[in-house]
Design a protein around this nucleic acid. Structure first.
Length: 427
RNA sequence: GGAGAGAUGGCUGAGCGGCCGAAAGCGACGGUCUUGAAAACCGUUGACCAUUCACGUGGUCCGUGGGUUCGAAUCCCACUCUCUCCGCCA
C-alpha cells in the first residue's frame, strides 16, 4: 500500500510511475475523488460529533445536579439520524478507498529500467562461464528419471500434474542443499533461522501483498480460511506485524526453509516438463526488516548473499534488474538471479531479491521507534530466495552431469551428502 | 470436541454508564545531585485520522464486529484469541 499523502500530493508523478507497471489511470482518478469526499465528510461528521459530545456532557452535569435534561436529550436525539446517515456513506467511501489502494502496486525506484515486459530487464553481471560439454548435455527431466531420483509419474499419481516425488540420492541432495544454504546464511550472513507456520491467515497474506489481488494464485484451506504459504516471505515478514520495534533492533534478518505452495493459475502449458514449475517446492528464504534509509544498500547485500550460494556451488549465473513491467506487485526494485541450465541452453530464474520499501510495512503495520523517541516510523522490508532448492537441484544435475549419465556432487555440498560424491543410476 | 476463566497503554494492573485516553507500579526518556555512575528527588512518556502557515483544535480507538443509550472500557449479542480442567492425539 502507498502512503495517502504521497497519492494526494504527487498524483501526477505517482500516476505515471504506476502506469509503467501496468496500472490504468482510471483507478487513480476514482481514488482522488473518493479521498476528497472522505475528507469533506469527515470534517462534517466530526463537527456534528463534537456538538453531540458537548451536549452529552452538559446532560451529565444537569443530571448530577438533579435537574431536568429532557429538552437537551430531545435535541441530541434529533441530530442522531444525520450522523448515522453520514457515517454509513463515510464507511462506504473508506472501504472503496482501501479496496483501490490494495490494488495499487509499489512505486518503482528510479534505478529500475522502464518497460512493459521482461524484454526490458537489464543485465547487471554474469558470473562464471558455462561449461563446455564434449557430449550433448541432457535436461534434468531426462537425467532425473534415468538416475531414479526424480519420479514425475508417481508424483502425478498422488497429487496431479506439477507434483514430483524424489527418491534416494535425489531426496538426499535436496535436503543437503537446504542445510547447506541455512548454515551459510546463519553462520556467515547473520540471519536468524526461523521455522514458521506453513498455513497463515488471510491477514498475513494481505500484509505481504498476495491478497486480495492474487488470491487465485494461492492454495486455500477451505475449512479454516487459511492459506498455504506461497513463500516463507509471508510468515517471516509478518512476524512483527502490529509491533513497534526499537531502532536499535534493526536490521532484523530472518531465514527459513519452507515448502512453498502455488496454484500457478494461468500458467497452463508453461514449463510443464520437469521440476521448474511445481505446485509444491522447497525454498530457503531471506527476509530483512531494515531502517528506511538503508534498504537499497540492504538489497545489494541480500542479493550478494543469495549469489554466494551459487558461487560456492560453482554454478554460472547472471543477475538481472527487472523492468517496471516484470517486477512483482510489492517490490520497488528486484534483482533476479538466473542460473545457467545446459540442458535447456538458457539462464533460468533461481532467485528473486526485492526491496519492498515501506509497501508491505504499511500493510502489515511494521514500525520502529527512533532512538531517542519520536513518532513510530515504518521499516522497509526485503526478501529474496536464497535459493529455491528444487531449481538448484536441477542446476546441479544439468551442470554436473557426466558423459556416462552420472552426476558429480559439488565439493561444497559433500559435507552434507554423507560422503556421497557422485549420483549414479545404480544408486 | 466438552466445561470454566479471561482479553485495558512498552510491561504489570485498577477502573461506580457521564468528571476516563483511562489510577497505580515498573520500564524508557529528560533534569537536579555526583569527578563519573548508582541511589534519591522532580518532570515527560499511546496510536491513528482530520484541520491549521503555525501554536493548537477536533474526532476515533480499552481483543474484533454489531446492539442498547442523550452518553459505553463499563450493559447486551456474536466472533476471535489466551489460560485451566477433561477428551483425543504426533
Amino acid at each position: 500500500m502507498l502512503a495517502r499523502t504521497l497519492l494526494r500530493d504527487e498524483t501526477g508523478r505517482i500516476g505515471q510511475l504506476l502506469q509503467s507497471r501496468g496500472l490504468a489511470a482510471r483507478p487513480l482518478e476514482t481514488w482522488q475523488r473518493l479521498d476528497a469526499e472522505r475528507r469533506a465528510g469527515l470534517v462534517e461528521i466530526e463537527d456534528l460529533k463534537r456538538k453531540r459530545n458537548e451536549a452529552s456532557r452538559e446532560i451529565g452535569t444537569i443530571k448530577r445536579e438533579g435537574g431536568d435534561a429532557s429538552a437537551q436529550i430531545a435535541a441530541v436525539s434529533q441530530s442522531k439520524a444525520r450522523v448515522e446517515e453520514l457515517q454509513v456513506r463515510l464507511t462506504e467511501v473508506e472501504t472503496e478507498l482501501t479496496d483501490l489502494e490494495h490494488g495499487f502496486p509499489n512505486v518503482p525506484h528510479e534505478s529500475v529500467p522502464v518497460g512493459p515486459s521482461e524484454a526490458e530487464n537489464r543485465l547487471e553481471r554474469q558470473v562464471g562461464k558455462p561449461r563446455e560439454f564434449d557430449f550433448e548435455p541432457q535436461a534434468h527431466w531426462d537425467l532425473g528419471p534415468a538416475l531414479g531420483i526424480l519420479d514425475f509419474e508417481r508424483g502425478a499419481k498422488l497429487s496431479g500434474a506439477r507434483f514430483t516425488a524424489y527418491f534416494g540420492a535425489g531426496a538426499r541432495l535436496e535436503r543437503a542443499l537446504i542445510n547447506f544454504m541455512l548454515d551459510l546464511h546463519t553462520t556467515e550472513h547473520g540471519y536468524t533461522e526461523v521455522l514458521p507456520p506453513y498455513l497463515v491467515k488471510r491477514e498475513a497474506m494481505t500484509g505481504t501483498g498476495q491478497l486480495p489481488k492474487f488470491e487465485a494464485d494461492a492454495f486455500r484451506v477451505d475449512s479454516h480460511d487459511l492459506f498455504l504459504i506461497p513463500t516463507a516471505e509471508v510468515p517471516l515478514t509478518n512476524l512483527h506485524s502490529g509491533e513497534i520495534l526499537d531502532e536499535a533492533q534493526l536490521p532484523l534478518r530472518y531465514t527459513a526453509f519452507t515448502p512453498c505452495f502455488r496454484a500457478e493459475a494461468g500458467s497452463y502449458g508453461q514449463d510443464v516438463r520437469g521440476l521448474i514449475r511445481q505446485h509444491q517446492f522447497n525454498k530457503v528464504e531471506l527476509v530483512q526488516l531494515v531502517h528506511p534509509e538503508r534498504s537499497f544498500e540492504a538489497l545489494e547485500e541480500l542479493t550478494g548473499q543469495a549469489e554466494k550460494v551459487l558461487q560456492l556451488l560453482e554454478l554460472p549465473y547472471q543477475v538481472m534488474a527487472l523492468s517496471t513491467g516484470d517486477m512483482g506487485f510489492s517490490a520497488a526494485k528486484t534483482y533476479d538471479l538466473e542460473v545457467w541450465l545446459p540442458g535447456q541452453q538458457r539462464y533460468r530464474e533461481i532467485s528473486s531479491c526485492s526491496n519492498c520499501t515501506d509497501f508491505q510495512a504499511r500493510r502489515a503495520n511494521l514500525r520502529y521507534r527512533p532512538t531517542g523517541g519520536g513518532k513510530a516510523k515504518l521499516v522497509h522490508s526485503l526478501n529474496g530466495s536464497g535459493l529455491a532448492a528444487g531449481r538448484t537441484l536441477i542446476a546441479i544435475l544439468e551442470n554436473y552431469q557426466q558423459a556416462d549419465g552420472s552426476v558429480l556432487i559439488p565439493e561444497a555440498l559433500r559435507p552434507y551428502t554423507g560422503g556421497l560424491e557422485r549420483i549414479t543410476a545404480s544408486g
